[in-house]
Design a protein around this nucleic acid. Structure first.
Lengths: 103, 103
DNA sequence: GCAATAAGTCAGTTTTTTATGACTACCAAA
DNA sequence: TTTGGTAGTCATAAAAAACTGACTTATTGC
């Protein structure tokens, strides 16, 4: 346990944090869509072919925990929730675009 | 199977490929070291605290398969193997540095 | 031939990640 | 008070990834 803890904290590579935050099965796609407009859960679910509630919920939560997305409750008729890029998230747009152009 | 296949090939996000190639527990660190100088297996194993043969072998193979590293056999006294960045790999250095500075 | 160095592979187990379907909570309209 | 929309959670199962230690291959030096 101690050994493991030390290893995990022993990140000598600063790029790793960011790579981890952005990578995964659905996160790149979610981030890409978030750049264009606020996200809504069921809309995402319909847009991202092959995904599922659970997968999206986890990905959204992780992006939120990483400080790249923020959840906003919209008190409308059937109560919406929006996910927007934070300032921190917006700062990644250039490098993300570069990744897109190289990938 | 068909559904899954389609889903996997249905990458609508171009950044995903690159993110996948670079991310993982050891790949960022390996890439970072590869930028500075050619890599040698046992040397890496000693340098990267907490890793192990198996983990490194898998990571190196994946980086090689992704076309970012190339294996070179050096016919010296005890027969070395070096891993160098390919041209393709070198082209990622700028974006990797950017990830490092943001991370 | 025998040991040492370098670079791995392999089998078995454990841990982590993904997928699936059923279920929950909130609110509003009929 | 039942139905419908939105946004999820939870339990369980299945699949993928990681860890471990023993084993393999190739070559050189003694």
């Amino acid at each position: 346990m101690t050994t493991k803890k030390i290893t995990e904290e022993n990140k000598t590579c600063p790029a790793q944090t960011l790579l981890k935050q952005l990578s995964g099965k659905w996160k790149p796609e979610i981030f890409r869509l978030a750049v264009n407009s606020p996200l809504r859960f069921n809309s995402l679910l319909r847009q991202i072919d092959g995904s599922n509630k659970q997968a999206l919920a986890v990905a959204l939560r992780e992006l939120e925990e990483a400080g790249l997305l923020q959840k906003v409750v919209i008190k409308q008729k059937p109560l919406h929730i929006e996910y927007n890029l934070t300032e921190n998230g917006k700062s990644l747009i250039p490098v993300f675009k570069q990744l897109e152009s190289l990938g």
